[in-house]
Design a protein around this nucleic acid. Structure first.
Lengths: 118, 118
DNA sequence: TTTATAGTTAACCTAATAGTTAAGTAACCA
DNA sequence: TGGTTACTTAACTATTAGGTTAACTATAAA
């Protein structure tokens, strides 16, 4: 998995990492603070952060002994754009559902009452 | 990784699988056809398909000895919605870049020329 | 009834992931 | 100077992922 999109999706495929991003959405934070919500060792968090950094989703700052992380949205945008090319498929299914419901409504009572609930 | 979103992102984190989805976007297809573009054994493709199916991205039909796959967009929609909650971040960075460029333009030559390259 | 086509399952290998503990580095604080 | 806080790195372990070949199943076609 060497391409950008693969790295991004792989980074997002973990709830801990998504939670870290969610936290960073409300502002930059040092590692110890990012680690707080998780029942996990510091090195484990460090590794998750490294994954997020390699994917370009998170950047590392420095402030005294702190290494505050901040969100970098570029790769999220790319991922969203990739998904966007499939938008018509989920919109289509709504159209079909719509169509189906409409059909049910207009054909109401014409046949198959026996199988209708209540 | 047991949650839906993790399974979805994990499934998307592989270029072969994304290419399979892209192919399925232009209509359902049997496994042998899906396999054609790849220099990879059939069982490998079978495994990729299984990953896509477990994530709910692909459904399996049957027609004689064929097991045609089709795209299921539901999980793509969920993923897109998750990403959408971060939209303001990539829009914001454009705003900030814009702002910065504007600032550069209006403050041009006022200070710190010494540190400017070239 | 045999043969070919389409696909899956099993068994195996290697490399990467996700976690651990223990030890190291860097900056501040008394 | 010496301790404390905030990390990171190293070394290890267990599990999962992605690939292979070989063998199996199911349907069609001769």
């Amino acid at each position: 998995m060497n391409d950008r999109l693969s790295d991004t999706f792989a980074a997002l495929a973990d709830p801990t990492r998504r939670a870290i991003l969610a936290r960073l959405a409300s502002g930059e934070a040092p590692v110890t603070e990012l680690a707080k919500p998780f029942d996990m060792s510091m090195p484990a968090i460090s590794k998750h952060l490294k994954v997020l950094e390699r994917a370009g989703l998170v950047a590392r700052g420095r402030d005294a002994q702190y290494r505050p992380r901040r969100l970098e949205a570029g790769p999220l945008k790319e991922a969203a754009e990739w998904l966007g090319t499939y938008r018509r498929f989920w919109e289509e299914s709504f159209e079909r559902l719509d169509e189906y419901l409409h059909e049910l409504q207009t054909k109401e009572g014409k046949h198959d009452r026996s199988k209708r609930k209540k």
